[in-house]
């Protein structure tokens, strides 16, 4: 097979090949650290029943939606009371309710958010909890 304009075509194909496969070259042979969010804060240890305001599966999938709704309830409607699926009441507050138990932002929130390169804009208004470097 004779190639016409072979130099340009081969160069183009090499560029194509590396563009398509570069994630392989970046990652091969590296250990992939997976995120392990921690819930071993003093407040959670104190709880008799270690339960978040909603079931774990719901919180894992929908926490961002819940927080977004809470923001709207509290900031826009002035509504500070949340009734969960078990009819229990909670104060709508990121800093006083969520972060009261989950005081370990770095080991809880950031663990997955950094892994997925997600940057929630919670902390552009709220004050992030002070944590001791561990």
């Amino acid at each position: 097979m004779k190639l016409y304009g072979g130099g340009k075509i081969i160069t183009g194909l090499i560029i194509f090949f590396f563009l398509v496969t570069f994630p392989f070259f970046l990652n091969i042979g590296k250990v992939n650290a997976k995120p392990e969010p921690k819930i071993d804060t003093p407040e959670i240890q104190k709880l008799a029943e270690k339960k978040c305001i909603e079931p774990k599966a719901f919180m894992r999938a929908e926490h961002m939606k819940l927080l977004n709704d809470w923001r709207d309830f509290a900031v826009r409607n002035g509504q500070r009371l949340y009734v969960n699926s078990e009819e229990k009441q909670f104060t709508i507050s990121l800093q006083n309710t969520c972060m009261h138990c989950h005081s370990n932002k770095k080991k809880f929130c950031d663990e997955c958010h950094n892994y997925m390169a997600v940057k929630p804009y919670c902390w552009s208004c709220h004050i992030a909890p002070k944590e001791k470097e561990s």
Binding site: P23, F24, L26, N27, I28, G29, K30, N32, K34, P35, R60, A61, E62, C112, Y115, M116
Partner: peptide
């Protein structure tokens, strides 16, 4: 319909590092 997104990344990273 949310999926386990960290799991998706683990799988993707595994695919590109042949794990």
């Amino acid at each position: 319909f949310k999926v386990n997104v960290t799991g998706v990344k683990e799988l993707a990273m595994g695919l590109v590092s042949f794990i």
